[in-house]
């Protein structure tokens, strides 16, 4: 099943997939989204700029990385978060794509890694 990527609910497949991935990951960044969704970075950045203009997401800089998450001050944040969670929950392909990247911190100094 690939509901999210097939959905155009939020104006387009990439836009919907970006939103669902942000919801599932909590906090993420453009290159991670591009990698897990198999979309060009430029396309992700364009979507993120649009979502931020509409105050649906918020971003902050961590070093050179621009971290993005859903905006908790968005007027329909709770409802949006629930809907996106439900869409993401049904999309096993998206979950498998997210599983391709390790997010848990790794101890430093591990030989060969």
């Amino acid at each position: 099943m690939d509901l999210v990527r097939a959905h155009r609910l939020f104006g387009g497949r990439v836009r919907t997939a970006v939103l669902a991935a942000i919801r599932l990951l909590g906090e993420t960044y453009p290159s991670e989204l591009a990698a897990v969704l198999g979309v060009r970075l430029f396309a992700v950045q364009r979507v993120l700029e649009s979502l931020e203009r509409e105050a649906i997401i918020t971003s902050r800089s961590i070093g050179r990385t621009r971290s993005v998450s859903l905006n908790p001050r968005y007027f329909a944040y709770r409802e949006l978060a629930q809907l996106l969670w439900k869409l993401g929950r049904e999309d096993t392909d998206l979950q498998m794509a997210l599983a391709s990247r390790r997010r848990r911190p790794r101890r430093t100094g591990k030989p060969g890694l």
Binding site: Q95, M96, A99, S100, R101, R103, R104, P105
Partner: peptide, 13 residues
């Protein structure tokens, strides 16, 4: 735990 605390879907799998 990785999934709960870091949203690590690898842990879920």
């Amino acid at each position: 735990a990785s999934f709960l605390f870091w949203n690590d879907f690898r842990g879920l799998e």
